[in-house]
Computed example of a mutant assay.
Amino acid sequence: MSSPQAAAVVEVTAQDLHGPGVVFCPNPKMTQWSSHPKVYVDLSHDGQGKCPYCGTVYRLKAGEKIAHGH
């Protein structure tokens, strides 16, 4: 039986964003990058978001800004 792990926190920069303030999970740097379907996590509201599948929290690095294009 495996013990539950604490959710990972991944700090991202503005360059890591795909589209207007989103990242995708799992990301290619994860050891189990194909462990669940690809989902987009929205960081545009408060600078962070959580993957509904694995619980990984993505947080915009301090001082980074999300470019809002209209």
Score class of each variant (00 low, 15 high):
39 V>Y: 06
21 G>T: 10
65 K>Y: 07
64 E>Y: 03
24 F>H: 10
2 S>R: 04
30 M>V: 09
39 V>S: 10
67 A>F: 08
58 Y>E: 06
70 H>F: 11
65 K>M: 08
5 Q>I: 07
31 T>K: 09
54 C>T: 09
21 G>V: 04
16 D>H: 02
45 H>K: 13
23 V>D: 12
49 G>A: 01
38 K>Q: 14
61 K>H: 09
31 T>Y: 04
5 Q>A: 14
11 E>N: 08
22 V>D: 07
63 G>D: 11
26 P>I: 11
12 V>S: 13
68 H>P: 00
53 Y>E: 09
30 M>Y: 04
13 T>A: 03
58 Y>D: 07
24 F>W: 03
10 V>S: 04
11 E>L: 10
48 Q>P: 01
67 A>H: 12
65 K>W: 10
10 V>P: 03
64 E>F: 00
51 C>A: 07
10 V>W: 02
51 C>K: 07
61 K>W: 01
16 D>T: 03
60 L>E: 03
59 R>E: 09
10 V>T: 13
38 K>S: 11
68 H>D: 14
33 W>G: 13
8 A>M: 12
30 M>I: 02
15 Q>A: 15
57 V>D: 03
40 Y>S: 13
26 P>C: 09
35 S>H: 11
35 S>L: 02
45 H>Y: 08
13 T>V: 01
21 G>S: 03
25 C>R: 05
28 P>G: 05
52 P>T: 11
47 G>I: 00
53 Y>N: 15
21 G>D: 09
33 W>Q: 14
22 V>A: 13
5 Q>N: 11
48 Q>M: 08
11 E>G: 03
47 G>S: 02
44 S>I: 09
48 Q>W: 07
10 V>R: 15
55 G>T: 06
54 C>R: 07
62 A>V: 10
34 S>M: 10
53 Y>S: 13
13 T>H: 00
30 M>N: 10
34 S>K: 07
15 Q>T: 14
57 V>G: 05
13 T>Q: 04
18 H>G: 06
